[in-house]
Design a binder for these strands. Structure first.
Length: 210
DNA sequence: ACATTAAGTGATT
DNA sequence: AATCACTTAATGT
């Protein structure tokens, strides 16, 4: 773990902080599809992504999911900040988009580090900001874009975080993420294929228009 | 060969 | 854009 922690965060933080991290941090691995954090769970640790990707979902009263954004290497979960001060529960669900490796830092540490290390404070502030920006972007997408544009954007995002132009998923899964029905996705996908933006295969979609 | 799961289609709201 | 009802295609046992 030391190597990949240094590789991903070493340039950001001073040596003393890196040393502390290695002391208190616990590396965890999650297989694709595993729920990392669910709605209602108390947040005790803060995750730092080493590799892989995580998708962040919101759930409505009837159990329907809606994808908010993806987290990638070097990112951290912004929900943690708002929740760890005091004992709040998670408002979101985090699922491993691909096989994921992350370091768990106890929330006590992140509080003391805030005042102790400037680089840490900067990191938290920056990631809060980028998270907020991404969230606004998805809000815009949902509010102003038609379903076909949302679909294409989602596929591009998915291809991006997995670093693969081939997106492994089913129509049903996409429908779930975008909170629509499978039939609609199937039809829109066919339209996108005709337009030459994607290529369909069973359980797999190639995104051409990246 | 059969059951299961994913995807395609037409009609209706 | 959603839902229903149904067909067709791919895959697992």
């Amino acid at each position: 773990m030391e190597e990949s922690l240094l590789q991903n965060y070493g340039y950001l933080f001073e040596d003393a902080l890196m040393a502390e991290m290695q002391e208190v941090g616990v590396v965890k691995r999650f297989d694709q599809g595993t729920i990392i954090m669910d709605i209602g769970e108390t947040i005790s640790h803060m995750p730092l992504l080493l590799s892989g990707a995580i998708k962040i979902l919101r759930e409505d009263e009837s159990g329907d999911e809606l994808l908010l954004y993806f987290l990638e290497r070097g990112d951290t979960c912004a929900m943690t900040f708002s929740c760890c001060v005091g004992t709040h529960k998670s408002e979101i669900r985090a699922i491993a988009e691909s096989n994921t490796e992350l370091v768990m830092i106890p929330v006590q540490n992140m509080e003391t580090w805030m005042s102790k290390y400037g680089t840490w404070r900067q990191f938290i502030l920056d990631s809060y900001h980028t998270r907020m920006t991404e969230l606004l972007e998805t809000v815009d997408t949902i509010a102003f874009l038609r379903m076909d544009e949302r679909l294409l954007k989602h596929l591009q995002d998915k291809a991006m975080v997995n670093h693969d132009e081939y997106v492994q998923t089913t129509h049903q899964d996409i429908a779930y993420d975008l909170n629509t029905s499978r039939v609609v996705i199937s039809r829109l996908l066919k339209k996108l294929e005709k337009e030459g933006k994607i290529e369909m295969h069973r359980n797999k979609i190639k995104v051409i228009d990246l």
